[in-house]
């Protein structure tokens, strides 16, 4: 089903979209039907420049299991970094 739920977050960083690298400042996260992934539902992440064109986003469609694995990997990677480097 279409879940309608949408989480948003303010982010700071850059990503590479279809044409070039771009500054990113918004993240939209939701679990819903994918466009391309071979699953009925996926965890979808759109990273976008706040004032960019809609096509400037960096998009991910991950299975629920893959999304959790990614989240765990992010936590492990950040936990291994000295705190003074994360500011």
């Amino acid at each position: 089903m279409c879940t309608y739920t949408t989480e948003r977050a303010t982010v700071s960083g850059s990503g590479k979209g279809p044409a070039r690298w771009t500054r990113l400042d918004t993240a939209t996260v939701y679990f819903d039907h994918p466009v391309h992934a071979l699953a009925d539902h996926t965890l979808n992440i759109d990273l976008a420049p706040h004032e960019g064109a809609p096509g400037d986003r960096v998009a991910l469609e991950l299975t629920a299991e893959a999304a959790l694995a990614l989240a765990d990997a992010i936590h492990v990677a950040l936990d291994a970094v000295p705190a003074d480097l994360k500011v």
């Binding site: 949408t6 948003r8 939209t28 939701y30 466009v35 759109d46 976008a48 809609p54 986003r57 998009a59």
Partner: peptide
């Protein structure tokens, strides 16, 4: 939400 954009990009913009 996204005149002229690809449908998946427009859907993402609408969702946001």
């Amino acid at each position: 939400d996204a005149p002229g954009a690809a449908s998946d990009d427009a859907a993402a913009a609408n969702r946001a």
